[in-house]
Write a protein that binds this DNA or RNA. Structure first.
Length: 151
DNA sequence: GCCAACGTTGGC
DNA sequence: GCCAACGTTGGC
């Protein structure tokens, strides 16, 4: 069992969209580190914090669950798609994705400001200055600490 | 809108 | 393999 944090811009896809969708293919990941986390680390049933980025305020707004094994991201093959990558092919897919399933929406956001001042979360990858990864692993203790902050 | 941080690209 | 130029992310 591993824990993760995934970022999404609420203007593009929010926790409410996630709740409506129920299950959502997480396509469009075009970063090797994030891809490798999905490929090498994610297991069906893993839990992930759902984080709203690029908004006011940014922060953790809920929990989702890994609902599939990694599989090729076909949007990379579609020349008209936003995340088209000519270097990826059906024979040799460069990018992958997983499905996420809605688990929970917090009654209130846990804002980034609060994460930053919580001593137990010191060292969390997402809090590191300049971190732009859209998928990061989260330590179990940190994951549980953030759930505690919602109570 | 600004800009720091970081990843990617491509010339050499 | 180096590194400058460029693009993107995301907090502020």
């Amino acid at each position: 069992m591993n824990y993760w944090l995934i970022k999404s811009e609420p203007d593009a896809f929010s926790i409410d969209d996630m709740e409506k969708a129920g299950t959502e293919p997480w396509d469009g990941i075009r970063n090797y580190q994030a891809r490798n986390f999905m490929r090498d680390g994610m297991e069906v049933g893993d839990l992930a914090l759902f984080y709203h980025s690029n908004c006011k305020p940014p922060g953790v707004v809920g929990v989702v669950k890994v609902a599939s094994r990694p599989y090729p991201d076909h949007t990379a093959w579609d020349a008209s798609a936003k995340y088209y990558d000519p270097k990826s092919s059906e024979e040799n897919p460069r990018w992958i994705m997983v499905d996420f399933e809605f688990v929970e929406k917090f009654s209130e956001i846990v804002p980034l400001d609060q994460l930053k001042v919580t001593p137990e979360l010191e060292g969390m990858l997402t809090l590191r200055k300049g971190n732009r990864l859209s998928i990061t692993p989260v330590e179990e203790a940190h994951f549980k600490q953030i759930l505690d902050l919602t109570k």
